[in-house]
Design a protein around this nucleic acid. Structure first.
Lengths: 196, 196
DNA sequence: TAAAAAAACTAATAATTGTTAGTTTTGTGC
DNA sequence: GCACAAAACTAACAATTATTAGTTTTTTTA
């Protein structure tokens, strides 16, 4: 009789969620069956239900874990006294770091949230909207203080968020670029452009 | 007995593909059943098979239609004599325009390609790799000619491609930003940055 | 070590899936 | 209007799905 192996400091539920995130990322939420997830964990499918409520709960946990992490971070940055441009750089670097260190979960939250069920779907979108709103406000403040060019702040937020999200491609390729170079070059690109 | 309605200049197969792209975008490939697609077209599911071979064929057609469109465009740009920086601007603008005008198909090609079956999956990834390689070469040329800052060309391509891909969020929001402002601001951001 | 709780198992369910076979209706060309 | 092709239909299939019920094994507790 097989067992779900837990690392220290993590419950079996957390192990299941982590493996689910890996599989959901690789094959998409809908393509991963509970049997497949169970097999990856070395047990039979019904055994999972001793630890979790449903497949959809797994997705919910993943999405909100990620959503909350970013919300906490933006609130910290908002309450700091740093210059706006530094705040923007900080949040970009946080995105890049989080993307690289928690790739599976961030990827799933970015791509598979549409399979959330109500009311979680609505809650998740609300969290995301608020996060975007905070960033827009940050850019607007930067423009008012003349730290940032007069551009449409929403377009700037869109561009930044999309660019950092694109790090998921890098994960696939690696390309012998160090994480530090990647982070610095991308921050520089997004803040200062590429034209000489 | 219902019928699949065709617009002029399009076959019934094309109508099916177009509707499939819309549904695949909204609900993901795996979540859309053939019955659901048929209902959206006003017929019964088995009727679709008078026009198409399989569900996977629909995805294949969508992905390669998009892939080929970008390949044709990059080849045109490569063979032109314009300055490198103009070439880069042209391809960014092409991305933005194509994204906004053929949103469903581009979205599906970007997000659902992993459900392609071999050998199409391999072919698609090969097309995409070649496209990225062309862009990297373009950036490298720009650096050599001193038109572009000395940055990692792969990171620059990553940033640009991801940013334009992010226009899919804009589609959801609209936000009373005109397409022209969006295009100009994003191009400007990606080429010149946002810092004053 | 015996009792209780946790976590695995097997077997089964109802629902849904893409697709095929065979039939009937619709549209087209003469 | 008759023959033929195109395109719709109904009925059914085998496979897969998430999940439950009930049972057995393992682990923890006392």
């Amino acid at each position: 009789m097989a067992k779900i192996l837990t690392q220290k400091n993590s419950t079996k539920k957390e192990v299941i969620i982590q493996k689910a995130a890996l599989l959901f990322k690789t094959k998409s939420y809908k393509s991963v069956s509970m049997r497949e997830l169970a097999e990856a964990l070395g047990v039979e499918a019904p055994s999972l239900y001793n630890h979790i409520l449903s497949k959809s709960e797994l997705l919910k946990e993943i999405c909100f874990k990620v959503g909350n992490r970013f919300t906490v971070q933006i609130e910290m940055i908002e309450s700091s006294k740093a210059p706006t441009i530094d705040k923007i750089e900080t949040i970009i670097r946080f995105h890049i770091k989080t993307m690289l260190e928690n790739f599976d979960e961030v990827y799933v939250a970015n791509h598979e949230w549409k399979h959330l069920q109500e009311p979680y779907l609505g809650d998740f979108l609300s969290i995301r909207r608020n996060y975007e709103k905070s960033l827009v406000t940050l850019i607007e403040t930067g423009i008012e203080k003349n730290e940032i060019k007069k551009i449409n702040p929403y377009v700037a937020v869109l561009t930044i968020l999309s660019a950092v999200r694109g790090l998921e491609f890098w994960q696939r390729n690696k390309k012998n670029i160090s994480q530090q170079v990647l982070e610095d070059d991308m921050v520089n690109h997004l803040l200062n452009g590429i034209v000489n």
